[in-house]
Amino acid sequence: MAPPILVEALRKSYGAQLALGGVSFEVAAGEIVGLLGPNGAGKSTTLGVLATLLRFDAGRVAVAGHALPAGAARARRALGLVPQQVAVYPTLGARENLRFFARAFGLGRAEAARSAAAALDLVGLATRAHEPVAWLSGGMRRRLNLACGILHRPAVVLLDEPVVGVDPQSRERIFEAIETLAQGGAAVLYSTHQMEEAERLCARVVLLDRGRVVAAGTPAALVAGAGLRPILRLRTGRPLPPGWLAGVAGATLADPSAPETTIAVTDTATAPAILAAALRAGGDVLEMALVRPSLADAFFALTGRALRDEDAPAASA
């Protein structure tokens, strides 16, 4: 049985600008897969193709078993898109927005009303259901944006940075809703450049850079695969003398040029020994932090580029 989301060797160009250069991945039912990459990596283009909004040049794409573009009309019935932009009608109420999109996805009038009510409960907007969306806070709009994409319980959910600018409380509600969807059997593709979100939600991630998949797998595997070790950061009142770390096994100075003292460790258990060595060397330790390597670190390690790369090409944004 084909996975709900299947992308094989997907290629897409905007004129001479290559946006996707052979992207392949799949998302199984009940799975939440993160699509990570900096701006211009090709995330939105990938989502656009999957959402049937963009044509592609080559490759094989299927949504809910319907190959695109021929099966686009049928694929849309199984599709739920939560765009990065809050794409709702600002002068309508939350309930009106939800009812419209429910009807647009083919639900009957009564079923649309029930689904709208359930979605309002799910995202915590039942008490503000009749207010025009323009009156709602940014977080509430984000939640409504999510609800509009999932209220028809689609088999495939495409989320494009759904929690940008959302307050923590709303973000957690959104995460819970997404997890509920996945538990219900939906295949969820979650596009973001926030590694924390991916780590919080995604069982697997696909790292995109310049239109290509640079890595894919579980977050832990990706970090591990990048050969990254935890980092201990020390901030001292006085500079530490050279060789102060010589007696600590499994610890090496990682970045001598950094304003803070950065030590790469093979095991986080060496942290007390490092602290003791710094104290012995006369370092007036003001602050110490143990930082585990993240997906961003892994991405950086893999590509030499940060996930928040504002200089990325705009063509595929």
Binding site: A51, T52, L53, A73, R76, L79, Q85, A87, A104
Partner: peptide, 13 residues
């Protein structure tokens, strides 16, 4: 501008 046109295009309408 609201993005609703694009969103509606992902529906069966």
């Amino acid at each position: 501008e609201w993005g609703t046109l694009e969103r509606v295009r992902t529906t069966p309408i």
